[in-house]
């Protein structure tokens, strides 16, 4: 379903070219859960952004369901992201002026979704255990609670692919386990494909396919 071929992305920092992603090729089948581990700065986040169509590669291709992401124009690519892909970031990615329910529903503002989407949003918030924080603003939530809201948001558009960048970064051990269980549940019940970038080897080991990223080069473990 996801096919990455010779993907390369170079940044110029202080006049020096740095290959963040260096000729990466791999494939992920539909409904698979894949983990990528690696040190900070090894290019994991850049790779996720390339797969999600957030940045254009210098060379190589990202094919999803046989479609080359960069053959689409910007509007089509945005619509594609809105319908098929969602992200979980390692930083707080909530909009401070929106409540929990509004943050979760935010992706639906950019596409056509049915009227009962709000009910689904409430259900997702219950799943992540924040039903009593439905109308709270991010400033009234702890770091861990904010991360759970972002996780709920990642499923609002019923994506086919979730790209998670350190999704359990600042969660306590129990919540971390719950989140990983949720990923597995979504993976099994809804067939969502997960690519999870993590430092946590325990989480990485739970994935069917595991990769390691070193200096922009991806290798199977």
């Amino acid at each position: 379903m996801i096919e990455v071929k010779d993907l390369t992305k170079t940044y110029t920092i202080d006049g020096q070219a740095l290959k963040a992603v260096d000729k990466v090729s791999f494939a992920v089948g539909k409904g698979e859960m894949v983990s990528i581990i690696g040190h900070s700065g090894s290019g994991k986040t850049t790779l996720l952004s390339l797969i999600g169509g957030l940045t254009k590669p210098d060379s190589g291709q990202v094919m999803i369901d046989g479609i080359n992401l960069w053959s689409m124009n910007d509007d089509c690519l945005s619509e594609f992201r809105n319908k098929k892909i969602n992200f979980i970031y390692q930083f707080s990615s909530l909009i401070p002026t929106l409540t929990t329910i509004e943050n979760v529903m935010l992706p639906t503002a950019f596409g056509n979704y049915s009227e009962d989407i709000e009910g689904y949003a409430r259900e997702l918030i219950r799943v992540v255990g924040l039903e009593d924080k439905m109308n709270s603003y991010p400033s009234h939530l702890s770091g861990g609670q904010q991360r759970r809201v972002a996780i709920a948001r990642a499923f609002i558009n019923s994506p086919e692919i979730v790209l998670a960048d350190e999704p359990t970064g600042d969660l306590d051990e129990d919540t971390e386990k719950e989140v990983i269980q949720l990923f597995h549940r979504m993976n099994e019940e809804k067939g969502i494909t997960f690519i999870v970038v993590t430092h946590n080897k325990e989480i990485a080991n739970q994935a069917k396919k595991q990769f390691k990223m070193t200096n922009g080069i991806l290798s199977a473990i």
Partner: peptide, 8 residues
């Protein structure tokens, strides 16, 4: 982030 969620 909005763009990553599908905002055109």
């Amino acid at each position: 982030l909005l763009r990553s969620m599908g905002a055109k």
